[in-house]
């Protein structure tokens, strides 16, 4: 007889206890702070580097560099937090409430206001100008160096090293800006 009603005590106690279930969604669910619910972005801080898009295991992120937008297909996201961890400027965070149910799948696109876009465009232009100036300066520096070497080579008695330097200088002067920039970087 001792092997009977082993669960009897727990069963009777449960009859007079509060249910252990939550009547969701009528009763709201209490999330923990760390719960991985959905990804959210501070779009103004995003630099459109594309690290999150490349690292996402499901491919649910898309970064449009030209239009400064970041989009996510929340129905493909598996809440792995890889994007949050790998973002270099930490503009992505994980909110703790789950994505709401919907009747149709859609992609969430986050973009900037026109004012913010104007600022970003201006910054991009400034960056481009700075880069162009830097390249020109490096190119000028190299041309000056090449002239100096040319002068030095003429003075020296036509050795193999002088003709090689001339030949090298010749190719450098002949090729375009881009390779000149690289050469300038290597020589500097």
């Amino acid at each position: 007889m001792s092997g009977l009603f082993k669960l009897g005590k727990m069963t009777l106690q449960s009859l007079f206890s509060k249910p252990a279930t939550v009547a969701y969604p009528a009763e709201p669910r209490e999330y923990y702070p760390m719960t991985r619910g959905q990804v959210s972005i501070d779009i103004a801080a995003c630099i459109q580097c594309g690290t999150c898009e490349r690292g996402c295991p499901t491919g649910c992120l898309a970064v449009d560099k030209a239009n400064y937008t970041w989009s996510i297909n929340r129905y493909q996201c598996v809440q792995c937090q890889h994007c949050v961890r790998s973002c270099p400027v930490h503009c992505l965070t994980m909110r703790h409430n789950y994505t709401e149910s919907a009747t149709e799948k859609h992609v969430d696109v986050y973009g900037l206001t026109p004012a913010q876009r104007a600022v970003k465009d201006a910054e991009a232009r400034a960056r481009a100008e700075k880069q162009a100036k830097a390249r020109e300066a490096a190119l000028a520096k190299k041309r000056a160096k090449a002239q100096a070497e040319k002068g030095g080579a003429e003075k020296a008695a036509g050795t193999g090293a002088a003709s090689a330097a001339k030949g090298g200088a010749g190719t450098t002067a002949g090729s375009g800006d881009a390779s000149g920039g690289d050469e300038g970087a290597r020589n500097a």
């Binding site: 669960l7 727990m10 252990a20 923990y32 760390m34 719960t35 991985r36 598996v78 809440q79």
Partner: peptide, 28 residues
């Protein structure tokens, strides 16, 4: 009823998982 009670106990473990790693089943 034993099934329900066993899973009710298991919920405490899933709560620990969620509290510490953010997920109940897939922990990352």
């Amino acid at each position: 009823s034993l099934f329900m009670h066993s899973w009710r106990l298991r919920e405490r473990l899933l709560d620990i998982f969620e509290r510490t790693t953010g997920g109940r089943v897939i922990l990352n």
